[in-house]
C-alpha cells in the first residue's frame, strides 16, 4: 500500500498533452470523488441530524449542514431505560471477548509452532479446518440451549475465543520470528509460559494489534447471537436495541413519552422517533468511526496475510 511509485517525467508529460488521457483522468477522479462521498455522506447526514433542531429533522429538512445546534439528544437518549444497560453489555462483550481472543490466538499459535508437541499438526488442522465447515445455525442454537448459554452473558464471549482465522494469522507471524530469539531464553531453562510471555508476546505485538482490531469490531458488530439466544432485556446489545428502535416505531413512541417526565419547554430538543433513531445510530457507529482512521492499516495488514494463507 505504501510503496512509493516514481512516475517517469516523460510519461507525465505525454499524458498531460493528450486530450484522451486528460478526459480519462477527469472522469476517473470524478468517479472516485463521488463514490467516496457516497460512502461517507450518510454518516455525516446522520451526525448533523442528531445535533440539529428536532422539529426540522423530523420533517427531513436538515441535509447539508446542522441547523439550530444543540446536544440535548445525546443526554436525553441515554435516559431511555435499557439503553445504558445495552451499552454496558456491548462494551463488556467487546472488551472481554477481545482480550480472550487475543490471548487465545497468541497462546494457541505459540503452542502449535512447537514441533515437540504430541500430534502437533493434527491438532493444528483440527482447529483450522473449522473455518471451512459449519453445522448450520439450528444445530448450533440447540447446542447453545443445551449448554445453558441462552440468556447468559458468556454466550457472547465463549464461542469466539478460539478463532481459526486469527490463529492462522498469528502462527504465520510467529514462524517468521527467528528461533534464536526464543532459544536465548531456553538456555536459562525458562518454562514455555515464561518464554511465551517474555519473548514471543512482545515480538508479536504488531500482529496482535491486527487481531485486536478485527476481534473488537467483530464483537461490537455482532447481532445474530442476541437475536437467537437472548430474550432477557438486560442482555440486549446496542446493535439489537438499535434494530428494535428502527423497526418498532410504536414501541419507540411509548419510550419517548415515558422519558419526558420533566417536560422541556424548548421544542427543538423534544425527542422525536427520528431524533432517537439517529442519535442511537450515531452512538453505535461512533466507536467504529473513532478507531477506524487510526487502525485502518492493521485491518489491511491482517487481510493481506489472511488472503495469502487462504
Amino acid at each position: 500500500m505504501h510503496t512509493k511509485r516514481t512516475i517517469p517525467a516523460n510519461r507525465l508529460k505525454r499524458n498531460r498533452t493528450s486530450i484522451g488521457a486528460f478526459a480519462f483522468h477527469l472522469i476517473n477522479y470524478t468517479f472516485f470523488f463521488l463514490f467516496t462521498l457516497l460512502c461517507i455522506y450518510p454518516f455525516y447526514y446522520i451526525f448533523i441530524n442528531t445535533i440539529s433542531d428536532n422539529q426540522l429533522t423530523a420533517r427531513g429538512l436538515v441535509t447539508l449542514y446542522p441547523i439550530g445546534i444543540h446536544f440535548e439528544n445525546y443526554v436525553q437518549v441515554m435516559k431511555i431505560p435499557g439503553l445504558s444497560t445495552a451499552a454496558l453489555v456491548s462494551v463488556g462483550r467487546t472488551v472481554l471477548g477481545t482480550m480472550l481472543t487475543v490471548f487465545a490466538s497468541a497462546f494457541v499459535s505459540y503452542l502449535v509452532t512447537k514441533q515437540k508437541m504430541w500430534m502437533r499438526s493434527f491438532w493444528y488442522r483440527f482447529i483450522v479446518i473449522t473455518m471451512y465447515f459449519n453445522a448450520g445455525i439450528i444445530p448450533w442454537y440447540i447446542l447453545m440451549m443445551n449448554l445453558g448459554l441462552t440468556n447468559n452473558f458468556f454466550a457472547y464471549v465463549l464461542p469466539g475465543i478460539v478463532s481459526p482465522f486469527c490463529v492462522v494469522l498469528v502462527k504465520t507471524y510467529i514462524e517468521s520470528i527467528p528461533s534464536a530469539m526464543e532459544e536465548s531464553a531456553q538456555i536459562d531453562s525458562a518454562g514455555y509460559w515464561v518464554r511465551f510471555t517474555r519473548i514471543i508476546l512482545p515480538l508479536c505485538l504488531p500482529i496482535l494489534a491486527t487481531v485486536t482490531v478485527f476481534s473488537a469490531v467483530w464483537q461490537w458488530n455482532m447481532f445474530q447471537d442476541t437475536l437467537f439466544l437472548m430474550t432477557d432485556r438486560k442482555l440486549y446489545t446496542l446493535q439489537f436495541v438499535l434494530y428494535r428502535y428502527i423497526n418498532q416505531s410504536t414501541a419507540l413512541a411509548t419510550i419517548i413519552k415515558n422519558t419526558q417526565g420533566a417536560v422541556t419547554i424548548d421544542l427543538s430538543a423534544v425527542q422525536t422517533p427520528t431524533s432517537v433513531r439517529m442519535t442511537v445510530t450515531m452512538i453505535v457507529v461512533a466507536p467504529i468511526l473513532f478507531v477506524y482512521p487510526f487502525f485502518q492499516r492493521y485491518f489491511v495488514g491482517g487481510i493481506m496475510i489472511g488472503a495469502v494463507k487462504g
Binding site: M1, F32, F35, T36, C39, I40, P42, F43, Y45, I46, N49, T57, A58, R59, G60, V217, W220, N221, M222, F223, Q239, F240, L242, Y243, I246, T274, R277, M278, T281, V284, V285, I288, L289, Y292, P293, Q296, F299
Partner: peptide, 28 residues
C-alpha cells in the same frame, strides 16, 4: 479514497439498515 471507501465494511448490517432507513424512509 482507499481509507474512506473501506469504512462501510466495518459497520454492521444493522447500522447499514439504520443508514438506509435514515436516507430512504418514506416519511422524512
Amino acid at each position: 479514497v482507499q481509507v474512506l471507501t473501506t469504512l462501510p465494511n466495518f459497520i454492521s448490517w444493522v447500522l447499514v439498515y439504520a443508514v438506509a432507513f435514515a436516507l430512504l424512509n418514506v416519511n422524512n
